[in-house]
C-alpha cells in the first residue's frame, strides 16, 4: 500500500480554467500538470532546475514547474504551452519557432516558448542581448540557439506589426 500522504487543497487556474484539486503536499507542479491534468506539453529534462524544459508561467512569470510545489500555487494563474494556441492556430511565438526552425527535436521547445512568452510580456521589443538574457535558464541541445533567437525576434516583430501585446 502506498503511504498516506499529506494533502492540501489546490485552487488555481490552469490555462484560464478553474482547477480545484486535492494534491499531496510534496507533489511537484510539473507532475500535477503532466500526470494529474494530462498536460504533457510541459517536459521534464533534468533532475531539477538545470534545463528549463518544464518552464511554465505562474502569474505571468516563468518558473520551473519541476522545483515548484503544486500546493504553493493556490490562488495562482498557471499557464502552460497548451494555452498558447488559439483555436488550433499557433501563437506568434509558436509560429516564430515553427517557421524559423527554433525547434528541432522539440523537447526543450515548450519551456523555451514559455520563457519567451514571459519575456515578451514584460519586454515586447527585446534586442538580441535581451533575448539571450531572457532565455538563459533554458538549454537547447539541437539548434545552437541561433534560430531560437531569430524565432523570438520574428515573433516580436509580428506582434509589433499587428499592434498586439501579449
Amino acid at each position: 500500500m502506498a503511504e498516506i500522504k499529506n494533502k492540501t487543497n489546490l485552487s488555481c487556474t490552469v490555462n484560464g480554467r478553474a482547477s480545484d484539486n486535492i494534491v499531496s503536499d510534496s507533489l511537484l507542479l510539473a507532475d500535477f500538470l503532466r500526470e494529474t491534468l494530462g498536460l504533457t506539453g510541459t517536459k521534464i529534462g533534468c533532475d531539477g532546475g538545470e534545463c528549463g524544459c518544464c518552464t511554465v508561467l505562474i502569474d505571468n512569470a516563468p518558473q520551473h514547474a519541476c522545483l515548484t510545489l503544486a500546493a504553493k500555487c493556490n490562488g495562482k494563474a498557471i499557464e502552460t504551452i497548451e494555452s498558447l494556441s488559439e483555436e488550433s492556430r499557433l501563437s506568434a511565438i509558436q509560429r516564430g519557432f515553427n517557421e524559423k526552425l527554433g525547434a528541432q527535436c522539440g523537447f526543450c521547445t515548450p519551456g523555451m516558448v514559455m520563457a519567451a512568452e514571459g519575456l515578451l510580456r514584460t519586454n515586447p521589443d527585446p534586442n538580441e542581448q535581451e533575448i539571450r538574457a531572457g532565455l538563459a535558464s533554458n538549454i537547447c541541445r539541437c539548434t545552437g540557439y541561433v534560430k531560437i533567437i531569430e524565432a523570438v525576434q520574428s515573433a516580436a516583430d509580428e506582434l509589433k506589426m499587428s499592434g498586439q501585446a501579449l
Partner: peptide
C-alpha cells in the same frame, strides 16, 4: 519548416514519457 513542427511548438507532440 518541419512537417511535424506545429506539434512540437504547441506541446501536442508526445514523447515516450508522455
Amino acid at each position: 519548416s518541419l512537417v511535424d513542427g506545429p506539434e512540437k511548438v504547441s506541446g501536442k507532440a508526445k514523447y515516450s514519457s508522455d
